[in-house]
């Protein structure tokens, strides 16, 4: 294996042995040389902070340790404090985790349903104004998430926001959105559905193109209904393109910092806080770097578990 010359890994084209001329021996070193710049930077700004963070998680590192004083080793105290709801932290880990899952599942379900549905509509033969609809529907995807979040925050302003002004025009008195859990959840969900469905629509549109038209014609000749055609042709046909996108969407949504931090700001009373916004709160304004690092490690394990389950599930489905 070692120094066996350049080659096409998975799809790499360099299959012919160019390097018989003697260069072959050094290709492994060459590869490392090409990798070095990225590897060095990643080591410094990702791996080292990661290791540093793991160490911090076992200490009482806080604001006072930034300049002077060494933090003290506290063992698993930070993890215990988080999981047992130590009063000084003012957080309920399992509740936040539960909300995070509810948030992710509802969002991804809505993104995929709307995305695939709209892709199917846009794919109808003889539909006019296709390009116009497509342009309008893709727009939210192109707007930076951060700007989207700030805009929707203003849109849900109880007094001056566009949502309540629109409701007032229809004779409905709009609620004070962030005062109650369900209205707050509705507000952040609306925001995130707005910014999330176009991506799924684009992926589904690309997937639909790959399904041969004659499958449908053959099925129609056999008397299969539209519904049957959808489940037996469209869904399996879309699966290869949609599965990676859904996994991606799941992780994105699970970690959707901008929407929850800027739109609901965790209101009411931290009930719409998710794990990453809570992790941020521990850093700023609380300045509990040790606890924040322990919290980040917990998030790390949760994400790793979710990724494993995702990979397993998709393997099982594909088998």
């Amino acid at each position: 294996m070692i120094g066996s010359g350049p080659l096409s890994a998975t799809t790499g084209p360099l299959a012919t042995p160019v390097t018989r001329s003697g260069k072959g021996l050094s290709t492994e070193r060459l590869a490392y040389a090409f990798l070095a710049p990225a590897a060095i930077v990643m080591t410094f700004i990702t791996l080292y902070p990661l290791a540093y963070g793991i160490w911090m998680a076992f200490t009482n590192f806080n604001v006072t340790h930034l300049r002077h004083q060494n933090p003290r080793f506290v063992g698993l105290q930070n993890f215990v404090d988080i999981l047992t709801q130590a009063p000084y932290l003012d957080l309920h880990f399992m509740r936040i985790f539960g909300f995070n899952l509810l948030w992710t599942v509802t969002n991804v379900a809505l993104h995929v349903t709307l995305g695939v549905g709209l892709a199917l509509l846009l794919n109808l033969e003889g539909l006019r104004l296709k390009r116009l609809y497509r342009a309008a529907l893709i727009l939210p995807w192109a707007v930076p998430t951060y700007v989207t979040a700030l805009t929707w925050r203003n849109m849900f302003d109880p007094q001056y926001g566009a949502v309540n002004l629109l409701l007032a025009r229809w004779g409905i008195h709009g609620p004070d959105w962030f005062q109650h859990f369900w209205t707050s959840f509705a507000a952040v969900l609306t925001t995130n559905v707005w910014l999330g469905f176009p991506f799924m629509m684009m992926v589904a549109s690309a997937g639909l193109v790959a399904i041969p038209k004659d499958y449908y014609e053959a099925a129609a000749l056999d008397g299969a209904s539209r519904w049957t055609q959808f489940w037996t042709i469209t869904v399996p046909g879309l699966r290869p393109t949609m599965v990676p996108a859904i996994m991606l969407g799941f992780v994105w949504t699970f970690n959707q910092f901008n929407v929850l931090y800027f739109v609901s700001q965790g209101n009411p009373l931290g009930e719409t806080e998710i794990l990453v916004t809570e992790a941020y709160k521990l850093v700023d304004p609380m300045g509990l770097y040790g606890v924040a690092s322990a919290f980040a490690i917990l998030i790390f394990f949760i994400l790793a578990a979710i990724t494993l389950v995702n990979l397993k599930l998709t393997r099982v489905l594909d088998a």
């Binding site: 700004i45 990702t46 902070p49 990661l50 540093y52 963070g53 911090m56 590192f61 930034l66 970690n255 910092f257 990453v276 916004t277 992790a279 941020y280 521990l282 850093v283 770097y289 924040a292 690092s293 980040a296 998030i299 790390f300 994400l303």
Partner: peptide, 12 residues
């Protein structure tokens, strides 16, 4: 893994 998770060590 979200960048917020490496915030504390990066900050320090």
């Amino acid at each position: 893994f979200p960048s917020v998770c490496s915030l504390a060590p990066l900050f320090v």
